[in-house]
Design a protein around this nucleic acid. Structure first.
Lengths: 358, 358
DNA sequence: TTGAAAGCGCTAACAG
DNA sequence: CTGTTAGCGCTTTCAA
């Protein structure tokens, strides 16, 4: 029973107490707090005043019991922190959208082991405690998770997963194409594409460690290059713990005879070594080397990056909105939304030096 | 009523249904699911089997009603995203510690306006929906928030606030001292301290935009320098939108005649421009310039940073543990915990060139 | 315009 | 070892 609360716990104020004090019934208190129009204004004001005096706070569990709605949605994250990616703006976009509608957000991490072991069911799924789920699970969503969600018919929206329905994602292909177009318009011809994964995608994909979006970006870039009559050029980066490798790679790319005049990067972690080595080699950025990246962060080294601004905030907002719609109509499939990144010209792209010479 | 759920919603399975199917009473189901020892094993197994078949999930709200415990704690964040700081490891440390004990985590953002406006009470405080609160509110916790929490006697632990009780923080003074000692031991004498805020602390503090920890780091550094018979030297950085300024500042510091041979930075955002400019000026890092920083991130530019590893994970774990203790004993004040960062030697610190010459 | 009664799903206390 | 009864705090339905 609730009365076995520890010593020192605040004794919760209930509607009944307010009712007694205000000389009305509990239901009148309920209506007053809900702002019902039916009540006589004086009654309502009196109740609200007493509630204020007593420091009343509604019991969310009781409300959930009575209404069948939890007014809560849960956000699922990959427990492997190295793979997990939760930008502040994404969390904020979700949270804000929900809060504006009076919903709460709970967060949970799922480990692979939890999902592999058939006998275990993760806490979030063992209980009914939310009205729906947002899954922000970058690298290959575990099959068992999908099965569990379907079995329990939990309304779910997927963030940055490659699914035709019930999903919100960045329009990577468009973003890469746009970045490439930007460089083409500036007059670049030697435009290379560097991503933080090896060119041999398939080997990696099997291991589930490469995000599907890489392929999209590569295609967006390659297609734009070919449309301009140019040959796509991929710079390989081996993911490796030896981070000095990234510098060595960059040095190799930039000291080659046919070095690119512009590089499309995805991660800041790919762009920074490139810029650092450019500095080492005496290549001015952007004068002699243009660099464009995908990021939600304007700068990290004191230089405002030219970038495709990742729409983390919008992704969060759209995901939350879609989930709310799905909760209202659980059986409808919602066409996946693609949100375009936006070009921020920044200060790391300019016309190539060769253009001036010509 | 619960029966007014939208079309397509999964019909929730209740204990009563399991009870009927298994030919027992509801309370027996409750016990079986709780793993009670009192039950005859066969009964328990039968119940569990039926529960499994039906895909039973416990209703968290009903349980909260009956027990008076929500098994949920809430994490409060600053709604101003630019000020907010929620490292993956902090969130994970909190979440994991709670999950291991069967608790859920709810996240909410608080805006200043919400807290300034006396008439509004933020959603998290309007309802009772958690057993306690973690406040991760970097820049000056609003007074009104503190009042509301005290008024409702909500068990609260503060993260990275400067409070003698009920708080978990990084031991910044120790960290700065240790970083300085490390450089001293390597033989450096010209050790400067650069933080991303002006030397004139007080002007900033009034505006509430400087974290209290800066002062601690400055003192930890200064004290260690003086103990070594050296004069502390602070490099000023003006916080400014013109991020090129950071580069200009770094250029000024490093091209001065009496340039430091080592720099203690806090943010990576302070260290990166320094390293970039060192490159520009032909100063090798770490050969001619050592840089040490505070970070939870090993590298961001391809170079593993020498750093005081910020114990984000531990902070989260300790915060969660303290809160659980506080929930058990709400009236006890818990002495604030200080968690020390750990030195990661990295690759950006070495003995100074002058040592070799001497 | 207000109230009485019932019930949401679960668990604690007390019987048997 | 298992069941009965009651109640957590709230909202909904129906009645006054």
């Amino acid at each position: 029973m609730a009365s076995r609360l520890p010593e020192g716990f605040a004794v919760p104020v209930t509607m009944r107490q307010i009712a007694r004090r205000a000389g009305v019934s509990a239901i009148t208190v309920s209506r007053a707090l809900a702002g019902s129009e039916l009540l006589k204004p004086e009654t309502r004001d009196k109740v609200l005043k007493v509630a204020g005096q007593l420091g009343y706070r509604a019991n969310a569990a009781a409300r959930a019991m009575a209404t069948g709605r939890f007014n809560t949605i849960a956000l699922l994250l990959d427990a492997k922190v190295s793979r997990e990616h939760l930008p502040s703006n994404l969390l904020y976009g979700i949270q804000k959208t929900l809060a504006d509608r009076g919903l709460l957000l709970t967060v949970a991490h799922f480990s692979d082991e939890q999902l592999t072991d058939e006998s275990t069911v993760p806490a979030i799924l063992k209980q009914v405690m939310s009205d729906g789920l947002l899954v922000n699970y970058k690298m290959g969503v575990p099959q068992r998770l999908i099965e569990l969600l379907e079995r329990h018919r939990i309304p779910t929206i997927w963030i940055e997963s490659d699914r035709p329905y019930d999903c919100v994602m960045v329009d990577h292909a468009w973003g890469a194409a746009e970045a490439t177009r930007h460089l083409l318009e500036l007059g670049h011809r030697q435009i290379a594409f560097a991503d933080n994964h090896p060119a041999d995608l398939n080997a990696e994909l099997t291991r589930g460690e490469v995000h599907w979006s890489l392929q999209e970006r590569r295609e967006g870039y390659a297609q734009t290059m070919r449309q301009a009559g140019l040959v796509p050029r991929f710079l390989q980066v081996h993911p490796s713990d030896e981070s000095r490798d990234r510098l060595a790679q960059a040095r190799q790319w930039l000291s080659a005879r046919d070095r690119p005049t512009a590089v499309v990067c995805f991660l800041t972690a790919t762009a920074l070594p490139v810029m650092f080595i450019a500095q080492e080699l005496g290549l001015r950025v952007p004068g002699e080397l243009s660099v464009i990246t995908f990021s939600d962060q304007r700068e990290s080294m004191g230089i405002p990056m030219s970038r495709m601004r990742l729409p983390d905030l919008a992704i969060g907002e759209v995901a939350a909105q879609m989930l709310l719609e799905k909760i209202e109509h659980p059986s409808r499939r919602l066409r996946s939304a693609r949100v375009r990144p936006e070009l921020d010209p920044g200060q790391t792209c300019s016309p190539p030096a060769s253009t001036r010479r010509a």
